[in-house]
Design a protein around this nucleic acid. Structure first.
Lengths: 321, 321
DNA sequence: ATGAAAGCGCTAACAT
DNA sequence: ATGTTAGCGCTTTCAT
């Protein structure tokens, strides 16, 4: 019918007919059936976005970046959550691909063999995000978490700390947290140092866990002069606890987290951290899918550089211990 | 073909053929085309979930409740975010309905005329969530925010506070925050009281805003003996600021927030709050769509009861001012 | 500028 | 237990 032409603003349609169709559609409360449309046109304006979690502050911000870009295009994000579980990632990916989206943005470069095969055979642009330490299927946008850990270690050592503890998540499938820790240990090793203590948690309120783990670690290893947290939320918990106990931060004890979450702005003092470029990663990934990225639309490899923010919890050069 | 039968475990298929089809499918990396399937069967295993925001802690938790329930069913959630904007809600809803989902879960009971018309004509189960102060299109699961505000006011007055300030978001379209404030003022009015000061913010780090607004309000109205925050995040910022300044909480100044977010567990002391039953709301809404709710699948009206948690920031009966 | 017809890749109903 | 057929509601192409 001509109707189809009107609703998609295609082809030549006379003004009169157009108006008539439009008003009829509105009167009937007509909503076109995209299923049929997609089947006929072999085009689907959906972009699959697969992320491990929504409950921390990091992925929602990536999503915000993606949405900001896609809002300017006909594309729409559809998000799937894996809870850091490879089997769930497989399921979610399978479901998504069965809708034949225009592209997929997926967190991480580690995937099960089946997932990787699906991504490779999908025949659409794939962007793996967050992490660049690995071989991408197609495009890749992120930061090097290994390097982030490494540089934080160097900064800490440069500030004169040497007895260092690590506090993080107990997540075998959070590869980025793992890589940060490995990079961090590598950085310590450069200076002939090693982690003196470490502790991992899972589940629960991160702020509370940070508080509890800090207390436990300091009770166990009172000589530590620095604590590196695998994320800002537990770091903030630790910081609050130290402040409460009157511990001299950063003199007696230095602290650092990771992510650069907005939350930190509201703390009594600024926790040292490293910005993970979350929003920018989302923007870039979306641009690659939308085909508006200057870098192109396939095989792009983009490594962003996280900014180290010393804040108030690492000694500055002049400051004495 | 028989293939269709195998992939959907339907009808009688011999073991041998089944195996053959399955292995062939795997070898070819075959992913079925749900578009064609949906068109043919007139069934789509998608549930549209429309929420205003992902950047606070409240909606992700609702989503977690929804996912937990839908994971046991063939249904899959697809989320859309409106940023509290009615026009965006309209667009997102239109897009979703054009995929003919099995149901829609949507936050709030206030919608534009066009959105309401779409919901009414969709011919699928609709569940409006979070808020029960209004007339639903179909089903409704939530709490009464008006009553939540009212009861908080009563508790505060019962504890002996009388010079009360309000701090909240400047969001004309956050109807739930508005209703809480209205209910709160109603509660004050019962005791012949009224708000002595109020301040609203928008954007930025909520924790930081809470800190700044608290400082500003106390500078302006030093006689206040209670601050009611429209959410826990700004409440936490205010609490941290008070602790820092050595203000006697809850003796000299009482504080309360709203939501019952997990974050509060990690604070130096427990902020009074009211649990919004977020996870439970998500679960119930999903059950209604899935048809597994004992209440039925259409026209359900479910009001949950938020629990008041006095924490450490409201005086207990025995405590003196 | 408009209409007619084929067909997208499946499912459902009906053969066999 | 397996094969056959007619659509699902659009888009596309070709005709008028």
């Amino acid at each position: 019918m001509t109707v189809s032409r009107v609703l998609r603003n295609r082809g030549d349609v006379s003004k009169a007919t157009r108006e008539k169709v439009l008003s009829a559609a509105k009167a009937l409360g007509y909503v076109p059936n995209k299923i049929a449309g997609a089947l006929a046109s072999q085009r689907v304006n959906l972009v699959g976005v697969i992320i491990p979690s929504l409950s921390n502050m990091v992925f929602p911000e990536v999503l915000a970046g993606i949405s900001a870009v896609l809002d300017e295009t006909p594309l729409q994000p559809v998000v799937g959550v894996t809870n850091y579980r490879p089997e769930k990632e497989e399921r979610v990916l399978y479901e998504m691909l069965s809708w034949r989206p225009s592209g997929v943005i997926i967190a991480g470069v580690e995937h099960s063999a089946a997932s990787r095969a699906m991504l490779e055979n999908a025949g659409i642009p794939i962007v793996e995000i967050m992490d660049v330490d690995g071989e991408p299927v197609d495009s890749m946008v992120g930061i090097s978490h290994r390097r982030a850990g490494l540089e934080m270690a160097r900064a800490i050592i440069a500030a004169g700390y040497s007895r260092i503890g690590f506090l993080g998540t107990k997540m075998p499938d959070d590869h980025r947290a793992r890589k940060r820790m490995e990079g961090f240990e590598e950085g310590l090793a450069e200076a002939g140092l090693a982690l003196e203590d470490r502790e991992f948690y899972s589940g629960g309120s991160a702020l509370l866990k940070g508080r509890e783990m800090t207390e436990a670690m300091l009770a166990r290893s009172p000589d530590l002069d620095f604590l590196y947290y695998s994320n800002d939320m537990i770091g903030a918990g630790g910081l609050l606890w130290c402040l409460e106990k009157g511990i001299d931060v950063p003199g007696r004890l230095g602290l650092a987290g990771f992510n650069g979450v907005e939350l930190l702005d509201g703390l009594p003092c600024q926790l040292a951290t490293m910005d993970a470029c979350r929003r920018e990663i989302g923007r870039k990934a979306a641009e690659i899918i939308a085909g508006t990225a200057p870098e192109g639309a396939a095989g792009v490899r983009l490594e962003l550089t996280p900014r180290l923010e010393l804040g108030d919890t690492i000694r500055k050069p002049g400051q004495t211990a």
